[in-house]
Design a protein around this nucleic acid. Structure first.
Lengths: 345, 345
DNA sequence: TTGAAAGCGCTAACAT
DNA sequence: ATGTTAGCGCTTTCAA
């Protein structure tokens, strides 16, 4: 009955070759402990000989699972965000594989309705669970998914819902900017300015609060030292001009590398050395921070670790859906480069 | 027979509600033309009412296809590459969706054997086809996949095999650097230096050849004007120092933005204005090129278009596997920014 | 134009 | 410890 090797071998093929039933082969693959050692060896040999791999579709149909995790790609945005996501996605794929899952990428048909993509995959049972990444305030995804009893883990805490019952993983942004600020205080700075985003960004407020906290704990004044602008190089540049003229800071902490690069532009224009004359620290440890002269110190998010935690939560969720998982909060680190400057003591 | 709404509705549920057979519902979904208008309307209403979506696993099992395209994520590499892939992947996901496919991400278990990941997915019939991205010389993937009759499209021409029979899409790197060089010639430069990669990089040689061609066509000397280094900021920086001292170029074309930033460091150190004093053009239009002061002119690859072409080739491949597809070659564009400098006429 | 029968490859439940 | 039976939800083939 050996087919022309045209189609892949099935359980039946292996069973026939090994002289056992199909179920025994299935057990050999999924519950080897159930077989006697010699039977297992015989079946295993037949499997190897035929190069047998269980058919995914058949297994999925029977077990009502796809071993697939859905991840929605947000619309392209110019900026540092893509690189951030790249590190996360990479680690997510690796961690998922170790847990026996693959990652399925999707976008929404309609940019006005990000839910459409989720709905389709869910109703066609194409994925077992989702990883939700853009948990900005008012994003309806979490509530929508919970309502549909769709398993998901959020990367980003549930801002909108303090007693959300879904698992989430997030990075403590405030700790990141506090770290950056403390670093500059340790270097001997006392007039440390903040350039951040507009008030409507919760993440921006979060990052800002870390600067504020570190300054207050060191009993340093923050009056006139903060600025809120758009996340663009030009905005960071003009904010730095104003702050330098009016508040005379010796150091800047910025909500993004983009803003920090803007500060560096202003310093260069005024003949000031970033680092030696004025210290600058950015946020996200982007490609730009690593490349720009003389190296931009920057807060680095543990994205790889975040992905590992997300998969961990996912496994727990799929194993025992009833258990209410706690949120996981991770702490960023600081990459110290040239713009930190020398000690000022 | 209405289940407790616990599990998703099936063909049978729709059939019962519409008062037709299961097969008729299947036809309504897949071959609407076969139904009489009123029957179709009735079935369609039942589908909407129940929120029916065909079960993916069942359909896959029956049709022996998964509507999934496999994409291997290369190991993380610090550098500009990740941002490049991000644009490509994004567009690939969008184009795939329009063609009815999803993108499945995977990595190889073993970093020494990139084939392992392909083999698993192939034998378990988890994907219909692959998109292969790293087609460097000597990469065995293409040959290996062809041997196994696995459908795939390569992003990257088959360097190793001029008469390869698989479809491929690539970007004409030489045209890109020729474009950059011609741009500088048009601005009035005649001593234009090249900083590229070591000889073992085929892509590097390709990018270099465009500079060479444009220079020769303009009957300009290239003697002493080329350098081959590692792809790092420090390398670009020291290469620029040597070239400035020994060959007195007025402009640089670089094989990457990373190298171009290195050149800009050297210029800054010598009190020279990138653009006004010495022109610089990079390659890849990375985040850095867009951010760095005063804006780095750079060759931009049409990655979005490349992904569209890849999916187009994939569709053709899966529809009629026998047809030998031709390769598609796309041409880059040039993003002009501050480092291009003024006209010198 | 619609329906009935069969089976894709696998595993859960049960029987031996 | 191994085998038998049944069926997951769908589509292909053929009959009405």
């Amino acid at each position: 009955m050996s087919r022309f090797q045209m189609s892949a071998p099935t359980l039946a093929d292996v069973a026939e070759l090994a002289g056992v039933s199909r179920q025994t082969v299935s057990n050999a693959v999924n519950n080897p402990d159930l077989l006697r050692a010699d039977t297992l060896a015989r079946v295993q040999q037949a499997i190897d000989q035929l190069g047998y791999k269980p058919n995914r579709a058949a297994r999925n149909l029977r077990t009502r699972s796809s071993q697939l995790i859905g991840l929605r790609m947000a619309p392209v945005q110019e900026g540092t965000a893509s690189a951030v996501m790249d590190r996360f996605v990479h680690s997510l794929v690796e961690s998922s594989r170790e847990a026996g899952y693959h990652v399925l990428l999707f976008t929404s048909d309609d940019h006005t309705d990000p839910l459409a993509g989720y709905d389709d995959l869910l109703r066609s049972t194409a994925v077992d669970a989702f990883v939700v990444t853009d948990t900005y305030l008012g994003n309806p995804q979490a509530a929508w998914l919970r309502e549909r009893r769709a398993p998901f883990v959020a990367f980003g805490r549930p801002w909108h819902d303090p007693d959300a019952r879904h698992p989430w993983v997030d990075i403590d942004a405030a700790a990141g900017s506090a770290l950056a600020t403390q670093h500059l205080i340790d270097k001997g700075h006392s007039r440390i300015a903040w350039i951040g985003w507009k008030k409507d960004s919760l993440l921006g407020e979060e990052r800002r609060s870390g600067w504020l906290r570190a300054m207050h704990e060191a009993e340093l004044s923050t009056t006139g030292l903060a600025s809120r602008v758009e996340d663009a190089v030009a905005s960071g540049r003009s904010a730095a001009q104003v702050l330098l003229d009016e508040a005379k800071p010796t150091a800047f902490v910025c909500a993004s590398d983009t803003l920090a690069v803007g500060v560096m532009h202003t310093l260069a224009e005024r003949g000031l050395q970033a680092g030696d004359d004025i210290a600058v620290v950015g946020f996200d440890d982007s490609q730009v921070a690593q490349t720009v002269w003389p190296g931009l110190s920057s807060v680095r998010q543990p994205l790889e670790q975040a992905a590992v935690e997300v998969v961990k939560a996912l496994e727990g969720l799929l194993a025992t859906p009833s258990v209410v998982a706690k949120g996981v909060m991770l702490t960023p680190t600081l990459e110290i480069r040239g713009t930190s400057g020398p000690d000022r003591h």
